[in-house]
Design a protein around this nucleic acid. Structure first.
Length: 463
RNA sequence: GGCCCCUUCAUCUAGCGGUUAGGAUUCCAGGUUUUCAUCCUGGCCACAGGAGUUCGAGUCUCCUAGGGGUCACCA
């Protein structure tokens, strides 16, 4: 059975890099009928925030990533970690280190001054004397002092790191609380993880965690280290780049499936395929096809994908989603027509909301340029004539084709081009030069509203 | 700085010793559309550089350059 996990620390919102590795992990577990677990890395009590945790869960919920079992909180498991610390101490695989923070800083400073790599010197590794008074010791694990720590990474291949790069790192702080690399290894083992898919930035934690696996006799999972996502300048994403928070995308009017499709193609691909439904992702995803190199985030493609998904979403769902953007049309009697006419022109739900508003609310102002271009010559006469024809039309006016017939009859009998009528009519009804076809707009707003808007526009036009 | 990783159009990528180096997004042009959008057609644009290996290299090796990651009693 494949067991994967997402293990955020609750110190901020869920960002798109995290969502991508979560997606990869989720896909791999679901594809294999395995488990996708959620674990909260909250061993640093001082930095945790309840709001951050809520934000992460909210984002998961929005994109539709579900997890199995109960959420595991590391802060609930200190007893477990303590037991293992004591075990390692008893087995002489770990030891107390009585160096103070000041001493440690001093050591680091002198190493740096000598151009050396800052590193614990192991001075208490085999200490048997009397511990200095007044110092609460930390616990350090005995890491191998020579040779190499090697492991196979599912993305990057064989990784070999010199043992000298890994020092006897701290597994328990002087206040007794355990540290990250220690608890991660324990939890991954205890939770039965088979595949750990995580960011590239954890690559260097892996040898440390391997030391813990080795000391405790656990079997390590397979590791996949996914390269980072950079910003449009090719640098690491930072808060300054904005729109890092997954929920920001919701606010901007993106559909979760578009975001997921965008992210799955960042660092992973299947030939030339661009569009992936969740089902297709599940069918084809395999971490072995993850790219080695970092990718840059570029919003254009996401926008394009979102447009695609908006176009292919049912009108019922769109109407529902639109409520968050202040548009309430679920009960509109021309709902289908309205959305069919607008969704093709919208890349985001926000734009869609604007498009709809432009149609269902009468124009409060007319675009200056549009006015100049359309309300000229005999435009007034044409609009007047058209309104009259609408009033006197004796066939039913329901569908766009009904209105189209009126327009056709009008231009023919007046011997003018379609544009002569279309342009002023468009500005009269919508206040601007672009938008859906006039026949559609009229069918949506109805004949009374159409005449009403024409009348109002007529007052705008000078003789 | 040490160590590790990475390097194909502006961007996401395909490629797995023999291809006119393909697709997608962006951009540009044309067509469709009374307009806009969609859609269709076409175009611009890439193997970081240098040595090898080979009949033949984007693909293998090495070097250089550039980029990234990491070096906490943070996670």
């Amino acid at each position: 059975m494949v067991v994967t996990r997402f293990a955020p620390s609750p110190t901020g919102y869920l960002h798109i890099g995290g969502l991508r590795t979560a997606l990869f992990s989720w896909l791999w577990a679901r594809k294999n009928g395995g488990k996708f677990l959620l674990r909260i890395e909250d061993t640093d009590l001082a930095r945790n925030s309840q709001d951050a945790l809520k934000a992460i869960l909210e984002a998961f919920d929005w994109v539709g990533l579900d997890y199995d079992d109960e959420v595991v909180y590391q802060s609930d498991r200190f007893d477990i970690y303590k037991k293992y610390i004591e075990q390692l101490l008893a087995e002489d695989k770990a030891y107390y280190c009585y160096m103070s923070k000041e001493e440690l800083d001093e050591l680091r400073a002198s190493q740096m001054a000598n151009g050396e790599r800052p590193r614990y010197d192991g001075r208490y590794r085999d200490f048997r004397g009397t511990p200095p008074a007044g110092i609460e010791p930390v616990v350090r694990i005995k890491a191998p002092q020579e040779g190499k720590i090697e492991f196979y990474d599912g993305v990057k291949g064989e990784i070999s790191i010199d043992a000298s790069e890994v020092d006897d790192f701290i597994i328990a702080r002087s206040d007794g609380t355990p540290t990250y690399n220690f608890v991660v290894a324990i939890d991954d083992a205890l939770m039965g993880l088979t595949d750990v898919i995580r960011g590239d930035d954890h690559l260097y934690n892996t040898p440390k965690q391997l030391v813990v696996y080795e000391a405790l006799g656990f079997t390590p999972p397979k590791f996949y280290h996914v390269a980072m996502i950079h910003n449009e300048q090719g640098k690491k994403l930072s808060k300054r780049d904005g729109a890092l928070d997954v929920m920001e995308y919701k606010k901007m009017g993106f559909l979760p499936e578009a975001l997921l499709n965008f992210l799955v193609r960042l660092g992973w691909s299947r030939g030339d395929q661009e569009i992936f439904s969740i089902e297709e992702m599940l069918e084809y995803f395999d971490p072995k096809n993850i790219n080695k190199s970092a990718s840059s985030y570029n919003i254009d493609k996401l926008i394009w994908l979102n447009g695609h998904y908006i176009n292919n979403t049912t009108n019922e769902r769109l109407a529902n989603l639109l409520q968050e953007f202040g548009v309430h049309i679920s009960n509109h009697d021309r709902l289908e027509m309205l959305l069919d006419a607008t969704k093709i022109r919208s890349k985001t739900l926000k734009e869609l909301a604007q498009q709809i508003d432009m149609i269902i609310s009468p124009p409060t102002a007319y675009d200056e340029k549009a006015k100049k271009k359309a309300f000229k010559g005999n435009a007034k006469e044409i609009l007047k004539g058209f309104a009259t024809m609408l009033k006197e039309w004796n066939k039913p006016l329901h569908l766009p084709i009904d209105y189209h017939a009126v327009m056709e009859h009008f231009v023919k009998s007046n011997e003018i081009g379609f544009g002569k009528l279309g342009q002023p009519l468009r500005v009269a009804l919508l206040g601007q030069m672009s938008g859906p076809g006039m026949d559609e707009v009229m069918a949506i707003i109805g004949v009374d509203e159409t005449i009403d808007r024409i009348d109002r526009a007529l007052q705008e036009i000078k003789e």
